[in-house]
């Protein structure tokens, strides 16, 4: 059977989900950092259509459980692979056996990067103190632009993966994500107040 095929090609019955398949394999995609979002989406949709619990609403308990497992796994694959940061860290763990974002890897050490993050945070606090929405938007746009740059650097780095080069990029990106989440939280607090 083709790897990652959910349905038996002969009888069309749902097969057990093999937990050892990679998130790329489960979607039938080539493993790599650069991915075509449209291809990812159509691969996921095609497979979800075949295995989704809605197709097995009347089936026996075992089939329903398998459908749930498949769909859960496909959702995970789509969630991880469609986000370049999570995709990058997933690939990192495939290459080097662990996440670049866990405690084991330590945190950012590059003083230049750290300084930038500190300045950014100060700017956010200042803008938040006076509820300066325009400044928040500016900071958000800057962070987005930096995300784009890191994504490009990662794409280049993954052609010949070295943990020492890739891990700091992923960690810096993680910083940016936390920063963006903080902007959202400020807005939300004002909104719901």
């Amino acid at each position: 059977m083709e790897s990652g095929a959910a349905l038996c090609p002969q009888c069309g019955a749902l097969q057990p989900c093999d937990p050892s398949l990679s998130l790329f394999a489960i979607l039938g995609l080539a493993e790599g950092f650069v991915i075509d979002p449209a291809a990812l989406r159509s691969a996921a949709l095609e497979r979800l259509r075949a295995v989704h619990p809605d197709r097995f609403a009347q089936a026996d308990g075992r089939t329903q459980r398998q459908s749930l497992e498949w769909t859960t796994r496909l959702n995970e694959a789509q969630a991880v692979l469609s986000d370049p940061l999570r995709r990058g860290d997933y690939l990192f763990s495939r290459h080097f056996g662990q996440s670049a974002l866990g405690e084991e890897m330590g945190s950012l050490r590059d003083p230049e990067v750290l300084m930038r993050q500190m300045e950014r945070r100060e700017a956010l606090e200042e803008a938040a103190a006076v509820r300066d929405q325009a400044a928040l938007e500016r900071l958000r746009a800057e962070a987005h632009a930096e995300e784009k740059q890191i994504e490009e650097q990662l794409a280049a780095s993954f052609t010949a993966p070295e943990a020492g080069r890739i891990a700091p990029l992923l960690q810096e990106w993680q910083y940016l994500r936390k920063f963006l989440a903080e902007i959202d939280q400020y807005e939300e607090r004002w909104d719901f107040a």
């Binding site: 949709l45 979800l48 259509r49 989704h52 809605d54 609403a57 009347q58």
Partner: peptide
């Protein structure tokens, strides 16, 4: 519409996520 699809009356490719 979804109930009808769930009991298999329709072969429409309805997919709700």
């Amino acid at each position: 519409i979804q109930a009808d699809a769930l009991v298999g009356n329709q072969s429409d490719d309805l997919l709700l996520m």
